[in-house]
Write a protein that binds this DNA or RNA. Structure first.
Lengths: 335, 335
DNA sequence: CTTGGCAGTCGGTACAATCGAGTGCCAGAC
DNA sequence: GTCTGGCACTCGATTGTACCGACTGCCAAG
């Protein structure tokens, strides 16, 4: 099933590589012309017919060349692609990027998405670390108006969460201070998920405030979707020729929640590449995604990915994703 | 110069409206067929020839109909467009949106950009309120590791700023607390711009910490660009037929800084519409932007805008922008 | 000043012929 | 048996031609 004799594999590789480069159906003549396939066009034709029977290739119409199917791409990335190194200029670009990367996590992740899209010429997605894992470093209630306050939570990974609260009566500065103290006592050091309100104090309003905030924090973890940074969407305009495809892909990229769950789904299935129908998401049927987790100290913190047409340059994109995820991880370890 | 006799105006209006609807060059026959132009095609031809001489219309090629120029659109929006009311369904959509809008400012602005893009079928931009105007409500230094701390600043408008700082020696919790106290004393109540460090304390490290943070906050106002939310980029794919145009527009929209300065520039010139070459930004030469400031208590806090092809539906888009900016402003006043 | 008429322009479409890239199959060579 | 050259065939793309139709500009008559 997933094994092909050497010559079939060589033909398939040739078709995929040629098609990735030219975006044109490739015929037996072109394949036979390649140095690594030392046979005549006629023989290639026979092999191609067999590959088509087995579902690796397809023909747009009679008298046209062959085009790889999703299955064909799958075999290509699984069996025919060694994770090549990046080109020298790309390598330099990555190096310089991480050498001068600094500042806030968000800013860096945002810039990373741009880097990745420049390296691959496709759209890139960077998903930030989830909040659940981090512990709370600080909780503070800041009054904005007599009845409105902002709860600012600082997590150990440097992320800051904020939530506004409104009450029906004026709460006063001293109550805010007391609530801050009580919340700090209980929450600092624990994770958002395990946030539990402290025991009652006797002051009903104060207790209700503390309870609201603690509850909201717990809810925030499940509700609040992870931060997502998408870069290089403009490149999708050139990647497909059908306007409708472009529109639907861009539309999908705007719905960050969808993108995140797609990536998560692929990662959970242990894949690093999902091609066309494999991810089962109709609007992106003509797309392939390459994902990789990144993390500090060996554990996963987030995911990066690139999204391109199924005929994307897999070797290059795989290399770029691998390098960036690895460098990003070690960059996070540092500071 | 900017005045046209009634019949020329009617012809121009007809051409613009027809072209907006059909995207096809419009000929004398179509114009003459409209009820508000009671003359024969021949007369219309004469008028159109005059309008072309004066630069309001252009001909893609001989034997084709006429197309409005930027100047033609300009006259149309200035003289021929009354700010009509929104359609009932749009009106309802806006009403429902603001009725259920809640939560964080960022979230609301983000959703507003989506609303505006749905109302107009073009891309929408929402620029958040600038930080300079707001006063500081709270400053807090939170230690993340022995040498790294996060300065969290809460502004009176509910915005939260964060900046990481790293020192060469361990600072310790008590110094962070002292620094927080000193900073709070000086900064709370003032604006970011006027942030000034307090007098020296005698502790060199502490003073340097305080100084760094105060300086950084002052710098943040000028450096940190305003928050921008862009929605409906996918709609640009359908708005232009040239792929290259789509790519360049999307590319521009990804560079938020460029978008913000474009909007700001238009607003500063007192315009509400900039058509094609008027904004002088080459990559968007085929685009028109409609902008409107929104604000609480009468003063400006931010800007909203829509970006579409020069042949956009101006009456509808103008109405949508006007309504949304007004509703958004009053929504901010409430909470 | 308006209008109907008319000659002229020119892009878009429809159609046929042709071209060429590619295929499948088969018979012969190695 | 496997490979290969040859051949007939298919079918999309290109080219050329003719034509149609939607325009315009101009002019002379109302």
């Amino acid at each position: 099933m997933d094994s092909l004799d050497d010559r079939k594999a060589a033909v398939l590789r040739a078709v995929v590589e040629e098609y990735i480069e030219t975006a044109q159906p490739v015929g037996s003549g072109h394949v036979a012309g390649r140095p690594d396939v030392g046979v005549s066009p006629a023989t290639v034709r026979n092999e191609m017919a067999a590959l088509e029977r087995d579902g690796y290739l397809a023909q747009p119409h009679t008298s046209a060349g062959r085009v790889p199917t999703d299955k064909g791409y799958r075999f290509f990335v699984d069996q025919l692609t060694r994770l090549g190194p990046l080109g020298p200029s790309e390598r330099l670009q990555v190096k310089e990027f991480f050498a001068q990367a600094h500042g806030e996590l968000e800013q860096m992740l945002h810039d990373t998405s741009r880097l990745l899209s420049e390296l691959t010429s496709y759209a890139a997605v960077v998903v930030g670390p989830p909040a659940e894992a981090a512990t709370i470093r600080s909780v503070q209630l800041v009054g904005l108006s007599p009845r409105v306050a902002l709860a600012v939570t600082v997590l150990s990974n440097g992320a800051v969460h904020k939530h506004t609260f409104e009450w029906n009566e004026d709460v006063g500065e001293e109550r805010l201070g007391a609530a801050t103290a009580r919340l700090s006592g209980v929450l600092v050091g624990s994770t958002m998920r395990s946030a539990q309100p402290p025991p009652p104090s006797g002051d009903a309003l104060l207790d209700s405030m503390v309870d609201q905030v603690a509850t909201a924090l717990r809810a925030a973890v499940s509700e609040e979707s992870d931060q997502v940074f998408v870069g290089g969407t403009a490149r999708m305009a050139a990647a497909f020729d059908a306007v409708e495809t472009v529109r639907s892909v861009l539309d999908t990229l705007e719905h960050q929640y969808v993108v995140v769950s797609l990536l998560r789904d692929v990662v959970d299935r242990g894949l690093s590449v999902a091609i066309g129908s494999e991810h089962g998401f109709q609007p992106l049927a003509e797309c392939a995604v390459i994902v990789a987790p990144y993390g500090r100290q060996g554990e996963r913190s987030g995911t990066i990915g690139v999204l391109g047409p199924t005929r994307m340059n897999y070797p290059q994109a795989l290399a770029a994703v691998a390098v960036v995820s690895q460098r990003l991880g070690s960059r996070l370890d540092e500071g």
